[in-house]
Amino acid sequence: MQVLNKILSRYAGEKSDLVPLLQEIQSEYGYLSEELMKEVSHFTNAPESEIYGVATFYTQFRFTPKGKKHISVCTGTACHVTGAQQIIEDMERHLNIKEGETTPDEEYSLESVGCLGCCALAPAAMVNDEIKSKLSLRNIKKLFKGYKPPESSK
């Protein structure tokens, strides 16, 4: 909680700080846990339901931990027409999880996102902060080289 207090100390607790505050907490902790949101509720003097309501409205916020390698597959129009859906399905097969999930060993997490803005390099995905461009079912194998997913996804 020391980390959290340090973040909170930079804000005045006003309502308009809520989104940036949650963003900063998520970038530090990787996700928004129930406890963290309770603390934010105390801090901003707003009901927990409201904090949760705002957090769930925006797709950026997640409520489960990320994997060590977090993969965001772009599903913008250009990526869609060049086969993003197949890329996602194939990654699901490689990792034995569904989109939006994390592997049980917390190595990988997979999600689909709105346009990443690399339309000229479609289909694209982001692995942590690095853009992978012109993906194909052949070249994504390299991303998972040597990785064997644990048996069950739950």
Partner: peptide, 18 residues
């Protein structure tokens, strides 16, 4: 924080207001 509707001006303002 990733909401397409926030490109709409009144939604964008609501978002800035938290």
């Amino acid at each position: 924080a990733g909401a397409f509707v926030c490109g709409e001006e009144t939604a964008l303002l609501a978002s800035i207001e938290g």
